[in-house]
Design a protein around this nucleic acid. Structure first.
Lengths: 155, 155
DNA sequence: ACTGAAATCGCTAAAAC
DNA sequence: GTTTTAGCGATTTCAGT
């Protein structure tokens, strides 16, 4: 599916204002409401728009810490990787997890209220992940940039 | 602001379905439409709900790579940190950036279409960041978990 | 204080062009 | 792609718990 300029403008707006009324979106991109809605539905059905979500303020929820955890496994066989991945998707406090190139390691991001809370998460969730050889944790002090929006060419 | 069980259920739903109709949300949490809307507005005004966004499928946009970049600066003085942070917020392809504990380093996540595209981003955006002593890049192969939703107690 | 019910208003979504 | 239109959801008001 190829996107023209208007599609990209629609995506640009929706990436910042996911709950904007269709009528307002139509105004912003210079389209009638029905044409705009048709495009929006097409973008949803194609899967380019994966979902709409509310983003919460993590400090206001008391989750002040972001912690990065680099994990090395005891081996790289399919069984070991799959067992780890199955378990990590069930670890509810793991926000992100990537399989990394190089050492076939994983990079995780976990949020916690404070160091004590991280200790709990470590004990209850991270320590139970199977096949872990080594974990290296790095604490973030402060987020500088957090964005979910990809840059869009709207020239 | 304190959240009761219904507030947390509202947040839990909105973190997954950010564009749900208020009437449907009211059904899900067992409230009338007007009561539900009032709570939702209160959560927005308090800032607990920071924003609503559309999440796009990055592979469908051709952004197949996630790259982590760890950056060490030439010093930790306020001027150096501030200059770096001001520049990094303007680097449009930097999705996340955290000030890290320990070595007063930064951890960045950048998305790129492919290695060549990353080279462009490196040249145009990362190499221009001020005060950088050393950069260590790590490539992700595949995302295992990507979530923006914090776990909510809804007992 | 917070709920639910009712009335109004505006938007969505489909049809026609 | 636009305009039109019917119907439904959002929002406000008001009264009850």
């Amino acid at each position: 599916m190829k996107l023209d300029v208007i599609d990209r403008r629609i995506l640009q707006v929706l990436q910042k204002e996911g709950r904007i009324a269709n009528a307002d979106l139509a105004d912003k991109v210079g389209l009638s409401a029905s044409a705009c809605l048709r495009r929006m539905r097409a973008l949803e059905e194609s899967g380019i728009i994966a979902s709409y979500v509310a983003l919460l303020d993590q400090t206001k929820l008391g989750r002040r810490m972001d912690v990065f955890v680099e994990i090395s496994l005891v081996g790289q066989s399919n069984e070991i990787l799959e067992a780890f991945e199955k378990a990590v998707v069930r670890a509810s406090e793991v926000m992100d997890c990537f399989l990394m190139a190089g050492d076939a390691d994983y990079m995780l991001r976990v949020t916690a209220a404070d160091p004590l809370d991280f200790e709990r998460i470590h004990r209850e969730q991270l320590a139970r992940l199977p096949g872990v050889l080594r974990m290296k944790t790095s604490f973030a002090i402060r987020p500088i940039v957090r964005t979910t929006a990809f840059p869009m060419d709207t020239k």
